[in-house]
């Protein structure tokens, strides 16, 4: 597999008259790793949901490798090459870890043994090998996060949407996930777009950052530029602990990152 180019053009979404996202435009070139950041309620997950087909944008277009995808159903989006994880993880609780990932892999093959084989490979890559016979319900949160990534990858995406996969991970686990994603990107050329509050991960992974605030794009650029952007500083200074801007993202919701 190789990466696909995502082009988001002026998308907007209202909920009951409230503007959740308006006129947001950005690109994720094939093979790139980009991040979408911003305070809580900035519209990041709404953007993700529009790209992933949970709901159609009210305005604007979304294209994957020049093919318009806005308005397709989530399963059609998946078939067109986008895999996603959920902010609040949604493993198939009553099924085994291996079945979870096998189901993802069945998006690419109708042969169950083949899908199972693919699932086992992915579980090895993500270090979940020894837990593959466990029920997903019995996994710890970090393992569930990894399982989400594995299931999304199993569908064979060319673009991976990761919604806060680092949240709740310990620093060492965060580093493992970062290393895995970097390696995955280098090996396969898969495009990655991540929403992330854990800034150490954002800084380590992404070449380019888009900052949302109140549903609008207020800045974008390299991590270096973005963290020095006055508009971004303004937004994060409004938050509680923002002495060192997006260091711990959306207001230090979780004890994070400083220990190492």
């Amino acid at each position: 597999m190789s990466g696909a180019h995502l082009a988001v053009r002026s998308i907007g979404k209202r909920f009951r008259g409230l503007r959740a996202v308006s006129d947001v435009t950005f690109d994720v070139p094939a093979g790139a790793i980009h991040a979408l950041i911003g305070p809580n309620g900035a519209g990041k997950t709404t953007c993700f949901n529009m790209i992933a087909g949970v709901f159609a944008p009210d305005s604007g277009t979304i294209a994957l490798d020049d093919r318009p995808i806005a308005g397709l159903r989530p399963d059609q989006i998946c078939a067109s090459g986008i895999g996603r994880t959920f902010q609040i993880v949604k493993p198939f609780m009553g099924l085994t870890v291996e079945d979870n990932v096998t189901i993802g892999a069945l998006a690419r093959t109708r042969h169950v043994p083949e899908a199972r084989e693919a699932a086992r490979r992915l579980l090895r890559d993500l270090g979940l090998d020894d837990r593959r016979a466990k029920l997903a319900a019995n996994l710890t949160l970090p393992d569930r996060k990894r399982l989400e990534v594995a299931r999304a990858l199993a569908t064979g995406p060319r673009l991976l949407l990761l919604d806060e996969v680092m949240a709740g991970l310990r620093p060492t686990e965060t580093d493992q996930m970062v290393a895995f994603l970097k390696d995955l990107n280098a090996r396969t050329g898969i495009t990655i777009l991540l929403i992330e509050h854990v800034m150490r991960a954002v800084m380590a992974l992404s070449q380019h950052i888009v900052v949302l605030h109140h549903g609008e794009k207020i800045a974008e650029g390299t991590p270096h530029d973005v963290t020095r952007d006055p508009a971004v500083l303004e937004v994060y200074l409004g938050q509680e602990d923002a002495s060192s801007p997006p260091r711990s993202g959306g207001g230090g919701r979780r004890p994070e990152g400083e220990a190492t």
């Binding site: 992933a52 949604k90 198939f92 099924l95």
Partner: peptide, 14 residues
């Protein structure tokens, strides 16, 4: 089984 466990996640998985 996937639909039984979580329809939303099932749909996201294609």
């Amino acid at each position: 089984l996937a639909v039984r466990e979580d329809p939303e996640a099932a749909q996201a998985a294609g």
